[in-house]
């Protein structure tokens, strides 16, 4: 009987392990993007682009139509030369709308070794799935 109870408790362990993995893994905000096509090759940290920050200020159409960012991570090859010429990020990051390209450390904030991809969870904690 006692052993049965203990075995029942042990069955909770995988659930607990899952909880821990969920808590300890990358907990980037939904829609966060790592851009590292060229950053680290050029000796800079990867760029972390945060959708939540930008969508408060601009509708999707501004970057994904007006500025011609593809809606696929890494599909648009962005270089510092283009940004300096006012293309892509440089359309805003020019000292008029947002900070200038001299502020390298404000965009290149990622951990070394991250690969170009979209981050953030696909999980939900709400009643939408019930």
């Amino acid at each position: 009987m006692q052993a049965t109870i203990h075995i029942t408790k042990l069955r909770l362990l995988p659930v607990a392990m899952l909880l821990l993995v969920g808590s300890a893994a990358v907990r980037a905000e939904f829609g966060d993007i790592v851009l590292n096509n060229v950053s680290e090759q050029q000796g800079m940290r990867p760029v972390i682009f945060q959708h939540w920050f930008h969508r408060i200020r601009f509708q999707c159409r501004v970057c994904h139509n007006e500025l011609k960012f593809e809606m696929r991570v890494g599909a648009t090859q962005v270089t510092m030369d283009q940004i300096s010429q006012g293309r892509f990020c440089g359309a805003c990051h020019n000292g008029e709308i947002a900070w200038t390209v001299e502020n390298c450390d404000l965009c290149h904030t990622g951990k070394p070794g991250l690969t170009t991809k979209i981050q953030g969870g696909h999980e939900t904690k709400g009643p939408g799935i019930w």
Binding site: A25, V26, V34, C104, D105, L106, T109, G110, K111, L114
Partner: peptide, 18 residues
């Protein structure tokens, strides 16, 4: 603490938090 940003990155404290 989000697992993406490098804690040693000097610009981190200037960025808005979620």
């Amino acid at each position: 603490k989000d697992g993406l940003h490098d804690r040693r990155s000097p610009g981190l404290e200037l960025l808005q938090s979620p």
